[in-house]
């Protein structure tokens, strides 16, 4: 096993993990504020088609990403109005948002099938980004670095700033936060919009970075994995990074094992690996739950101060 081989494998892992990390980071903030938005998959697809369409028309991938974030945030506001202002059930509304996003992206994308868009150029000089060794650090799409920067910023804000403390307070005890004068609804709106924007960017990673094209349902269920990842990570930003890369590493390992013809484990075992992992992690979390849950206390509960 040469160095080049290992580096190529790492590049694959990072590539496949990044969109999940982006979407999960957004959902982490949403859930920290006490709201469960299950519509990540739908918002990602809206971001994917918007990013693609804008890049296709403007030839500028940066504009595409910004538009994807805006579209994701906009569609998340539909969810926001329903669950925050109208007090509808968060689980049902989130699922509806997922379905809406799938349908809407298909509708918008009908005219964009079979087209391709220009890709991001590297932000580092070619000497570094194409160097056989240094590409392991400098050889990625700019979106990879942006994703990492965002997750570190989110982790820092949540744990070390006043804004993060307020957000957590709203998620842990909405009535107390309300009684000392914080706008629970307003803060939750902002959190949902941030989650939507992150999901939108994550979606655009599929249509602009991994494969620069649009195809219906091209995120192929990654939004659901991002949701699960937030739970696995125990609502902690640091563990989210590890979890996302671990997921990418497992999937890449599966592909290498299959291509190398390792017959000691049947293909069905590898295919069921994510689910086995899910059960193991959930078991660990449930065990820890006995000593106190890590989930935000108000997660999924509507805020109705006057009822």
């Amino acid at each position: 096993m040469t160095m080049d081989f290992i580096i190529s494998a790492i590049v694959t892992v990072v590539g496949i993990s990044t969109p999940i990390l982006l979407a999960a980071t957004g959902e982490l903030v949403v859930e920290k504020s006490g709201v469960l938005n299950l519509g990540v998959e739908g918002m990602m697809l809206i971001g994917a088609i918007t990013g693609f369409a804008v890049t296709f028309t403007t030839f500028n991938p940066w504009l595409g990403v910004i538009a994807a974030a805006a579209a994701g945030a906009a569609v998340s506001m539909v969810f926001g109005v329903l669950v925050l202002s109208l007090g509808s059930n968060q689980v049902a509304t989130g699922l509806a948002l997922a379905i809406l996003g799938i349908g809407l992206s298909t509708l918008i994308g009908a005219g964009f099938t079979g087209m391709i868009v220009p890709q991001f150029s590297s932000i580092f000089p070619s000497v570094l980004s194409h160097d056989p060794f240094w590409r392991v650090i400098f050889g990625y799409s700019p979106m990879v670095y942006i994703a990492l920067a965002i997750i570190f910023a989110v982790g820092w804000v949540l744990n070390y700033t006043r804004a993060g403390l307020v957000l957590r307070a709203v998620g842990e005890n909405d009535l107390s936060a309300h009684s000392i004068g914080y706008s629970v609804i307003g803060i939750r709106y902002m959190a949902i919009a941030f989650g939507g924007a992150m999901a939108g960017i994550a979606g655009s990673y599929f249509s602009m970075v991994i494969t620069p094209m649009w195809a219906e349902r091209m995120t192929a269920g990654r939004g659901w994995i991002a949701l699960a990842l937030v739970v696995f990570a125990g609502w902690k930003a640091g563990r989210l990074v590890i979890g996302a890369y671990l997921f990418g590493a497992l999937m890449t390992l599966e592909l290498y094992a299959k291509a190398s013809g390792f017959q000691f484990l049947p293909s069905q075992f590898w295919a069921s690996m994510p689910y086995i992992m899910a059960i193991v992690v959930l078991a660990v979390i449930s065990y820890r739950d006995r000593t106190g849950s890590e989930a935000p206390a108000c997660l999924g509960k509507p805020f109705l101060p006057n009822s």
Binding site: I16, T211, M213, T219
Partner: peptide, 10 residues
């Protein structure tokens, strides 16, 4: 597409 791309890289 994402898994197809990863498998191709592999």
């Amino acid at each position: 597409p994402a898994k197809e791309a990863a498998a191709t890289e592999t």
